[in-house]
Design a protein around this nucleic acid. Structure first.
Length: 316
DNA sequence: AAAGGGACCTGGCTGC
DNA sequence: TGCAGCCAGGTCCCTT
């Protein structure tokens, strides 16, 4: 699932392969993919034509392409299954690709069943938004000033954000994040710590996978009440979440194919390094107790019942 | 106002 | 072997 490390991998790929190119034309092939664009697919395609991509920027799980530096952007959220794939001008397989190509990576043809939006550049290169489950979306939107005057996100020095991202907090890889303030806000919430970690208005970029990983690293039960956490504990949790996402980003980078910008680039990481997510029934890598899966927010949490003690008064 | 739960979506897997 | 039903989860929206 695309969480911060996967989205950042995509952003880096777009920065390398799309920035500087000019849009010749675009086609929206599924209305749901542009459901948040005011004006619909035809309007989006028409307004993209002739624009030049000047930056690839990310905040949390949102990423966007600045257009001409003119104060608007093509914004994308990958949802659960979204991919942004770049094919080079001749459309052929990448000649300079090295190392094993992830199995999910394949050339995109016009007949691709899940191709939602296609952007063609004047030099023949193509950007394709492919999304099986259509939880993701793209839209063209104006930038608005950041509340704190700091940079809008990773990859930009401009103090501006796409309007739909204005409510998204800075993420744990953002040097401009005020961690003390985020910690205070978390501790004044009356909720459970995993729910708070997943709240993108508190700290962004963390999804179910990295939430479980961070809680395991910090040895915290997902249902611990936020208003009873000490500041030092929250600091450790933030540090753990940052560390696991940096590790994932580094691992994703190694298997990341240079020309196909693929959210599955982190597959090598998933196979090797996850300590919690997907390990129910397997021994905890810290203490050996069998990991368990619990229902949480209509989904699941995987945790170590020995390292991550439930809060007092909670059901076992 | 804040917190929490359901809807949205589809391919793959499980169990009968 | 076939098929129904469950599962995955990020974000928005609605209710409490």
């Amino acid at each position: 699932m695309p969480e911060l490390p996967e989205v950042e991998t995509v952003r880096a790929g777009l920065a390398a392969h799309v920035v500087g190119r000019t849009v010749a034309g675009a086609e929206v092939r599924h209305p749901r993919a542009v459901r948040h664009h005011v004006g619909g697919g035809a309007d989006l395609a028409a307004r993209l034509a002739g624009r030049t991509i000047t930056a690839a920027v990310r905040r949390g799980k949102y990423l966007w392409l600045d257009l001409d530096g003119a104060g608007d952007a093509l914004l994308a959220h990958l949802g659960m299954s979204g991919q942004l794939l770049v094919t080079r001008p001749d459309g052929a397989a990448p000649a300079e690709a090295v190392g094993p190509v992830p199995t999910m990576v394949r050339p995109v043809s016009a007949g691709d069943a899940h191709l939602r939006v296609r952007v063609d550049f004047t030099d023949g290169a193509r950007l394709s938004f492919v999304d099986q489950r259509t939880f993701g979306h793209v839209l063209l939107t104006d930038l608005v000033p950041t509340p704190d005057g700091g940079p809008g996100g990773h990859g930009s020095a401009v103090p501006a954000l796409p309007a739909p991202v204005a409510h998204i907090a800075r993420d744990l890889l953002d040097p401009a994040l005020d961690r003390a303030a985020a910690s205070r806000r978390l501790r004044t919430r009356r909720t459970e710590v995993k729910r708070a970690l997943l709240d993108q208005t508190l700290v962004s970029g963390v999804g179910n996978i990295y939430a479980d990983e961070a809680l395991w690293r910090a040895a915290l039960h997902p249902r611990r009440p936020t208003d009873r956490l000490r500041p030092a504990t929250v600091r450790e949790l933030f540090d753990a979440a940052e560390a696991v996402m940096r590790d994932a980003l580094a691992a994703g980078g190694t298997s990341f194919d240079a020309l196909y910008v693929d959210v599955e680039g982190a597959s090598g990481y998933f196979a090797r390094s996850l300590d919690a997510y997907g390990r129910a029934g397997l021994p905890c890598r810290r203490c050996g107790a069998l990991m368990v899966r619990e229902h949480f927010m209509n989904r699941s949490s995987t945790l170590c019942p020995r390292c991550q003690r439930p809060p007092r008064g909670s059901a076992p």
